[in-house]
């Protein structure tokens, strides 16, 4: 029976992902084809006057622009199903390759920021929750609320001004030093370029986790079993370790997994500030430069990214929380 529920669960998730991706691709394709921006013109750019009308027609013909929108969508969709996302106009290479290459850079940034902000946010939340109502709590809460109102890119600019311009500790931008071959860039150099964008993202990501953890811990501390534990004489770290930690860590971790969308949004801004060559920078360039295949590809990819985050959050609950496990069996 256990196996059956699991199979049903997986099947449900797969169906959900499939319908989601289909819906997103239909919607985003419709949006893109509504655009008044002429793809041929944006492709040719400034050389427009040197291209004859026949050549224009040829390009339009080659891209299948003369077909109906539905036909265009069908041929695009068919290609996507075969794993072919088309060719990026800006980078002149396969969209899948561009996304893959850029995503690796973004992933390094996002993983570092995600882990650091998770740990610091969790710790701050615990401190605030344990000291509820004191000045420590108020400082942490105030800090989190201020962070929530801070434009992420402005924070990036401040860090850039402070560390790169004023102190001169870090380079001003780019993923690797200019004028050196990609293969010759040392790991230290890469880390130096990664540091500031990752720091920006980490600082911004702390607020949500911290506030959520604090809230949960306050609830736990008001519970009956904590009161009983207190009556037995447990206090401070012991109390937290035995009764608090397990109850608050799971919600915090799954909240953190479910925040992949915000993480991606933050990465777009941070990459723009530090001219870090990641996926976020690519989507901005695709939007500004009317690179339709790349834009659609990244929309689909980021949807998948967010979905994976939510799925992991969900799985974590199912796998770790004994109440959910038992609940699942009882339902059978």
């Amino acid at each position: 029976m256990r196996f059956k529920t699991m199979a049903l669960y997986i099947l449900g998730k797969v169906v959900k992902l499939a319908t989601l991706l289909i819906a997103i691709s239909i919607l985003s394709f419709t949006l893109v084809s509504l655009s008044p921006i002429d793809p041929v013109q944006s492709y040719i750019g400034a050389d427009m006057t040197r291209v004859s009308p026949e050549q224009r027609d040829n390009i339009a013909e080659y891209w299948g622009l003369n077909e109906s929108k539905v036909q265009q969508f069908m041929s695009w969709g068919k290609a996507v199903l075969h794993g072919d996302l088309g060719t990026s106009l800006l980078y002149r290479s396969k969209v899948a390759d561009v996304i893959g290459e850029r995503f690796v850079a973004s992933l390094a940034l996002m993983v570092v920021a995600w882990v650091i902000s998770g740990i610091i946010g969790f710790l701050l939340g615990i401190i605030a929750g344990m000291k509820e109502g004191t000045w420590v709590d108020r400082v942490i809460k105030g800090y989190c609320f201020t962070l929530a109102s801070t434009p992420a890119f402005w924070l990036g600019l401040l860090l850039l001004m402070f560390f790169s311009v004023w102190l001169g500790w870090f380079p001003i931008g780019l993923g690797s030093p200019a004028g050196i071959l990609e293969a010759d860039v040392s790991l230290i150099e890469r880390l130096r370029h990664l540091f500031l964008p990752a720091l920006t993202l980490s600082i911004v990501g702390v607020a949500n986790v911290a506030l959520h953890t604090r809230q949960k811990l306050v609830e736990v501390l008001e519970s009956e079993y904590v009161r009983f534990a207190k009556a037995k004489g447990e206090r401070g770290v012991t109390l937290l370790w035995r009764h608090g930690l397990r109850n608050i860590s799971l919600p915090a971790i799954s909240l953190h997994f479910a925040s992949f969308g915000e993480l991606f949004g933050g990465a777009v801004l941070a990459e723009q500030v530090f001219s870090y060559p990641g996926l976020g920078q690519a989507v901005v360039q695709a939007g500004l430069g009317s690179d339709v295949p790349l834009l659609l590809g990244i929309v689909l990819f980021s949807t998948l990214f967010v979905f994976v985050g939510n799925l992991l959050a969900d799985l974590l609950y199912k796998a770790i929380d004994p109440r959910m496990r038992r609940g699942g069996e009882l339902n059978e």
Partner: peptide, 21 residues
């Protein structure tokens, strides 16, 4: 769920492109 499944910034870029900037 559909609207929450795409990062907000990406949706904004997409719509901005669709309207023609």
């Amino acid at each position: 769920d559909l609207f929450l499944s795409v990062p907000h910034i990406v949706t904004l870029i997409l719509i901005s492109f669709a309207v023609g900037g």
